[in-house]
Design a protein around this nucleic acid. Structure first.
Lengths: 124, 124
DNA sequence: TCTGTTGTCAACCATGTGGTTGAGCAGGAT
DNA sequence: ATCCTGCTCAACCACATGGTTGACAACAGA
């Protein structure tokens, strides 16, 4: 499974509120499928499927303890996600600050807002 | 739209590789729908729909410039996402470190790995 | 006014997703 | 051996999603 796919699965996994809630509870400590299912009024099979999605995304691992399958939160993928997000957030932020500087520098020039913005050859 | 829903939409939006790529390119600067669509070999309508998803998630805004609809990356929601992730990642991390400390403290005691782990009353 | 450019809307299709119920497996407990 | 518990698998259903094509709205320029 390549990196991009892992990121996709991770974001898709956390797009569901029930799964986010499960992750939140697992952050406080490992728990069995049954214990995790208890607060929701959906079937235990549905919760099992949610956990499978989280596991396939690498966000959760399950060990074996007799009939029980305790779930454990794996934080690594969370790191992957923040790294992805922060990379672009920071880039946008920096660009914004640079723009601010440009605007400040030409504060007495009456150019309209349309800055050059050179983009790869298409359009216009 | 409530907060949880916004987070859901944001994660769902970034679960698609094409949309992540679009966000990545927008981080470098605003761009029109046509310019954004150019590298992909899907229809421009498909790209337009992707942008709509990003806009509904609050990740992108569009202004109007004649026929063109230049897209702009809105970084706030990215912040929301990292906050959500980091909260639980940190919590899991701390728990892990605490567990390490406990294990270190009882290094000459031969207790099995099954720590008490008090969880809300269900199961076992 | 007519034409070309840019983008959205609508309808449709295939596939994926979250839920259900029912069956069944693995492994204590009696 | 038998039963109960904890969980997963399989089949099914309704609906969402990503893609298509075709029509058309908005606007610049001839």
């Amino acid at each position: 499974m390549d990196e991009d796919d892992r990121v996709s699965r991770a974001f898709a996994a956390l797009a569901d509120p029930t799964r986010r809630d499960i992750v939140g509870r697992l952050a406080a400590g490992d728990a069995t499928v049954g214990a995790l299912a208890e607060p929701y009024d959906i079937s235990i099979q549905a919760v099992s499927k949610h956990i499978k999605v989280l596991a396939d995304a690498g966000l959760v691992s399950q060990r074996r303890d007799a009939q029980r399958r305790p779930c454990h939160l794996e934080a690594e993928v969370l790191d992957l996600m923040t790294k992805w997000i922060e990379r672009y957030r920071r880039q946008a932020q920096e660009r914004y600050e640079r723009l601010d500087a440009v605007l400040a520098e030409m504060h007495d020039d009456e150019r309209p807002i349309h800055l050059p913005r050179p983009h790869q050859g298409a359009a216009s």
